[in-house]
Design a binder for these strands. Structure first.
Length: 565
RNA sequence: CGGGGCGUAGCUCAGCCUGGUUAGAGCGCCGCGUUUGGGACGCGGAGGUCGCCGGUUCAAAUCCGGCCGCCCCGACCA
């Protein structure tokens, strides 16, 4: 029962000056959310309705795979996070209580849920378990951005699975894949389940659920044929280099004064950028210098290199070049290098290449990896649009927002927190865990991004704050007013959620607001229609209108609504 | 953490460079009236510690310093 004349829906004509992302602008303009401080957002009534509808879809799907909803605190003892080595994470909010006891604000709940399981699960008979909750997460983000897309406080559904062994974890993971697929489908999002970086934590598998949209902060590599991966780990066959120079029997020096960049060398020698060997000197954590080489037209992918090295690294500093690498910037190359060399797979089999000569103003040409230097081969380049995906499709790259992730944790948390059980032989074994996050706010923002038009938001039916917006144009005492009032009652009785615009405002204002707020169906009751013996229905997506019969309007509206996306 | 920008009415902004009556506009808001199928109009009105602190000056929204807040790019992102 929602009459807009008495509902807190503060729509505004102008977007906040500092808003950039479409979802940020529209959610604010539509009176759904307001910012309290950087990265801290309030949900106003209509916005909260959307959030709750997404939550409910998630809840139903979690329950359907046997998930058990619970609730854990946001404030945790600091020692719990020290136990897993996560106390030093910069994003973790830290505080003290009045007695000086150290506390943290939870950024996720692996620690607490595992702590409980460690205490109350002892037998193989108690496993498996799927536990989940919807709870606020607190993260002291270095840079909140784009409205709801990256905030310091947000609600997440996080579930945790506990199994006897790796096979059990695989089954739990598969259940989540199915549940998450359905959640994304039911929210009517365009989405991809992409292979994800397992990160330094070294889990055994991870996927992210990505919703493509312009404001997304991740890049995903997609092939029309089904391949989908986060750019951080994406892998593909490179495009061939056109116009490679003739191979030589041996590398041959060539003067390249002042040519310190790929463009300069390629221009000077008249060869394509792909005929060059790009050398990237880095220092691996622990102090070892390493020369990474990729094709001249390719870029190094830091994530892939980090995963390959199983260690962090940083670019070498200027002064380290002469010292550790024995050469100068701009003329570094793998031929004759006195450090360990790692070459990207895209260089394998190429001949007639150009590389730095490891002396100023000089390169060498006719280089052949494998013949002229003997590198460690690795796939460490960033894939590019047009590359050939493993499934044969052509790679395209799109920005996307991560709305969910699923992760095989293994024993990462059960071990430090002592979550173990006795198996049927009476032997103690560690519990195998998985963790699975989903952000309703991000799903909500992604839906705005994916479906908005010039007029405003266009919610998918499943997550709209209201099913139908009823616009009454008549004034008290007029027939249109009475018909609208009666129809409001009938529509509510039909089981639909109705927003009834009974405000004293001009038709233009009401129409504009209805399209801004974005309910999937609008029904207008005005004098013009009544004279023709009908009402007007407008489908928000596409803004097409059609008449509704006056005598069975509520029924007809409900039928129409059921057909909407 | 590095780079850039902003802070004046509820919102979007002008004024600041070149200091000087009572700090402005549009939108929004309140009252009255006319309007009523695409943010309509007229008349009247309310609303501002010019982010905060300090300095310079006869005089500071305006010049200088410090602080705080917010946004964007990058780094970072269990």
């Amino acid at each position: 029962m929602t009459r807009l004349s008495s509902y807190f829906l503060p729509t505004v004509k102008e977007a906040p000056a500092d808003a950039e992302a479409l979802s940020h602008k529209l959610l604010v303009r539509a009176g759904m959310v307001r910012q309290l401080a950087s990265g801290l957002w309030t949900y106003l009534p209509a916005g909260w309705r959307v959030h709750r509808r997404v939550e409910q879809i998630v809840r139903e799907e979690m329950d359907s795979i046997g998930g058990q909803e619970m609730l854990m605190p946001v404030v945790h003892p600091a020692d719990l996070w020290r136990a897993t080595g996560r106390y030093d994470i910069d994003e973790l909010f830290k505080l003290q209580d009045r007695r000086g006891a150290e506390l943290v604000l939870a950024m996720t709940h692996e620690e607490s849920v595992t702590w409980h399981v460690a205490r109350d699960i002892r037998s193989y008979r108690d496993l498996p378990q799927i536990l989940y909750h919807f709870q606020v997460k607190e993260r002291d983000e270095p840079r909140p951005r784009a409205g709801l897309l990256r905030t310091r406080e947000f609600i997440m559904k996080d579930s945790y699975t506990f199994d006897r062994d790796a096979e059990g974890l695989d089954r739990a993971y598969e259940l989540h894949v199915r549940a998450y697929d359905r959640i994304c489908d039911r929210c009517r999002l365009e989405w991809y389940r992409v292979e994800a970086d397992v990160g330094m934590m070294g889990g055994t598998g991870a996927h992210e659920y990505m919703a493509p949209c312009p404001a997304g902060e991740n890049d995903v590599a997609l092939s029309g044929a089904g391949y989908a991966a986060n750019m951080e780990i994406a892998s593909a066959e490179p495009q061939a280099v056109e116009g490679l120079p003739m191979p030589l029997d041996a590398p041959e020096p060539v003067d390249t004064p002042g040519a310190t960049t790929i463009d300069a060398v390629s221009g000077l020698l008249g060869v394509p950028a792909g005929a060059l060997i790009k050398a990237i000197p880095v220092v691996v954590d622990g102090g070892d210098p390493l020369l990474v080489v990729v094709r001249g037209d390719h870029r190094l992918n830091d994530f892939k290199l980090r995963n390959r090295l199983r260690a962090a690294f940083r670019p070498a500093r200027e002064e380290e070049l002469s010292e550790a690498f024995g050469t100068v910037a701009g003329y570094i190359g793998p031929v004759g290098a006195r450090v360990r060399v790692m070459a990207d797979e895209a260089l394998r089999g190429l001949r007639g290449l150009v590389a730095g000569a490891n002396e100023p103003d000089r390169h060498v040409r006719g280089v052949e990896p494998g013949r002229d230097f003997d590198p460690e081969w690795a796939d460490v380049r960033a894939v590019e649009a047009g590359d050939r995906a493993p499934d044969g499709g052509e790679i395209r790259i799109e920005p996307a927002i991560e709305i969910g992730n699923i992760f095989k944790l293994g024993t990462r948390y059960s071990e430090p927190l002592g979550a173990a059980y006795l198996d049927d032989n009476g032997e103690e074994r560690l519990i195998w865990m998985g963790s699975y996050g989903f952000g309703p706010a991000r799903a909500m923002a992604a839906a705005v991004e994916q479906y908005a038009d010039e007029q405003g938001i266009s919610w998918p039916r499943a997550i709209s704050p209201f099913d139908v917006e009823l616009v009454g144009l008549g004034k008290r005492g007029e027939e249109a007013h009475d018909v609208a009032e009666r129809l409001y009652g009938e529509l509510c009785d039909s089981g639909l959620d109705i927003a009834y615009d009974d405000r004293e405002a001009s038709p233009g204002e009401k129409f504009a607001d209805a399209e801004l707020v974005g309910c999937p169906l609008r029904v207008t009751v005005g004098k013009r229609g009544l004279e023709a013996g009908e009402l007007e229905a407008q489908v928000r997506r596409g803004r097409s209108t059609r008449p509704l019969p006056l005598d069975r309007a509520a029924e007809a509206a409900a039928e129409l609504w059921r057909e909407l996306p």
